[in-house]
């Protein structure tokens, strides 16, 4: 194949024609992107933390009933409304946080497939090494 007609060569020629593409500051772009990703990951971790805290408070509301009953705190008028208020609020927050986290951030911190991917990567690396060996032989 004539190199000047190869897609890669033509692509480079086409890109070179666009002044905006050629003069763009890619280093700065990558730095900004990295900063935005770091910020995004930080927010994801904060949201995950908030989600677990809300869920934890909700779970604690159940044994709290025993404490309230045990110490006869039901006789105090504001205890039960406070207990139910905290329970409802933590239920609501846990639902909202987990909804946002699942829809927006879950893949960001996903590690479940890591082991499978690692084994596939190892296999691919072996294939790349094999191709390089064949190329070197030619």
């Amino acid at each position: 194949m004539n190199e000047t007609h190869s897609p890669a060569f033509q692509r480079e020629q086409l890109l070179a024609q666009d002044a905006a593409t050629s003069n763009f500051n890619y280093e700065e772009f990558r730095m900004q992107l990295q900063n935005r990703i770091s910020h995004l990951e930080k927010r994801a971790r904060q949201l995950q933390k908030a989600m677990w805290i809300s869920a934890g408070v909700l779970i604690l509301c159940f044994p709290a009933v025993l404490v309230i009953e045990g110490f006869r705190l039901t006789e105090i008028p504001w205890v039960l409304p406070l207990w139910s208020g905290i329970g409802m609020l933590s239920l609501f927050l846990a639902a909202v946080f987990s909804g946002i986290y699942s829809s927006r951030y879950r893949p960001l911190l996903k590690r479940a497939q890591y082991d499978l991917q690692l084994s596939m990567i190892t296999e691919l690396q072996a294939q790349v090494a094999e191709i390089n060996r064949k190329l070197a032989e030619r």
Binding site: R111, Q113, Y114, Q117, L118, M120, I121, L124, Q125, Q127, V128, I131, N132, L135
Partner: peptide, 18 residues
């Protein structure tokens, strides 16, 4: 092309593992 495709696939999988 095959080599490039394989390298890209490898990089994508590594990027998927963050």
């Amino acid at each position: 092309d095959h080599d490039e495709a394989l390298t890209e696939k490898l990089r994508v999988m590594q990027a998927q593992a963050r």
